[in-house]
Design a protein around this nucleic acid. Sequence first.
DNA 1: TTATTCCTGTACCGATCGGTAAAATTTTTA
DNA 2: TAAAAATTTTACCGATCGGTACAGGAATAA
Lengths: 189, 189
Amino acid sequence: MARLVAERADAIPLLAEAFREFGFEGASISRLCKRTGLGKGSLYHFFPGGKEEMAAAVLESVQHWFAGTIFQPLETLPPAEAVNGMIDAVADYFQSGRRICLVGAFALDGTRDRFAPALNGYFTQWHKALAIALQRAGLPPAEAESASLDTLVTIQGALVLSRALDSEQPFRAAMEQVRQRLSVAWRGP
Amino acid sequence: MARLVAERADAIPLLAEAFREFGFEGASISRLCKRTGLGKGSLYHFFPGGKEEMAAAVLESVQHWFAGTIFQPLETLPPAEAVNGMIDAVADYFQSGRRICLVGAFALDGTRDRFAPALNGYFTQWHKALAIALQRAGLPPAEAESASLDTLVTIQGALVLSRALDSEQPFRAAMEQVRQRLSVAWRGP
DNA sequence: TTATTCCTGTACCGATCGGTAAAATTTTTA
DNA sequence: TAAAAATTTTACCGATCGGTACAGGAATAA
């Protein structure tokens, strides 16, 4: 019994990497079998809903990780610490631009329509959490909201450009720019 | 003779929309047939290299359109005019965030490796052209380069967020922010 | 008008697609 | 240890995949 849960959970990060690499449409069941080391039967045993359930589980897991590691600290830790922690965690998670954001990637093609609520929720939660941190740091609500959105935009755009140019430089530069821009919240304009 | 060229060219925008909607992997030949109104025979007659040649032709056509409409004006027109023209053209082309950037989308999954030079070329040319305009407007080379890169990052990220949140608002806000940020080039800091 | 070239529709290929069924095996529970 | 449940293997399904072959129709050139 414990084994089922443990192994289903263990499959999720492997599925995530496969979806990252091939996209939702490009990730065929046979590829997902190879990546997870599970046969078709096992995979469908864990995810009776097939590929769609696998992707949903992956998105849920990503969202959960971000909620615990990034969103929640943004709402509770001292703002400067939380924001800088977010930037470090994001740079680490996305491997300085070499690893893509699954949520962002899903948003860019027809896959979006299948998972619209999950994609919306991920960015909405992030946006809200960051805006709260910036408000706590002293930014007026409107500025906090717009700086928060701008930050998410910059992160996602940096991932696109780092991938397209096959270089960590755009991502690294963007992250430092984000750090500077957000620091006005506690250092004043 | 003239008919062949004309119809092959006419197929490209239709193929482009199909690739935008389904992604490269999700765009099956039968879907591409439906969208273009061409049978398999005709499609393979125009693009003997199959789907890969179709996507390459689409990317080339996109690149060509941007070169003429955006990159070239950036290098020749008066800077302020060129930059504002770029922003307007981009907002129009991407339908205020409802239409994705094919190049950006291709960069985010395994499709990138097939078309790496095209993706790199598109962003590199854009980046250079914008940096040149900003330098001509009076920005020091280093600032021009970083402001140019930041602009492309913001545009791509805005497309991701507008799609994910299913709203034009993030894109519109980002474009106005870009307009403001770049105006320091000719208005001074 | 004839010959040639260009274009299209149809049928077909093997491979792979997502998904199912059930037997066989392992693991857990009693 | 025996029964029950969880898990994996294997074979298989119809549909669709990307791609090819080719015959016939349509336009163009001679």
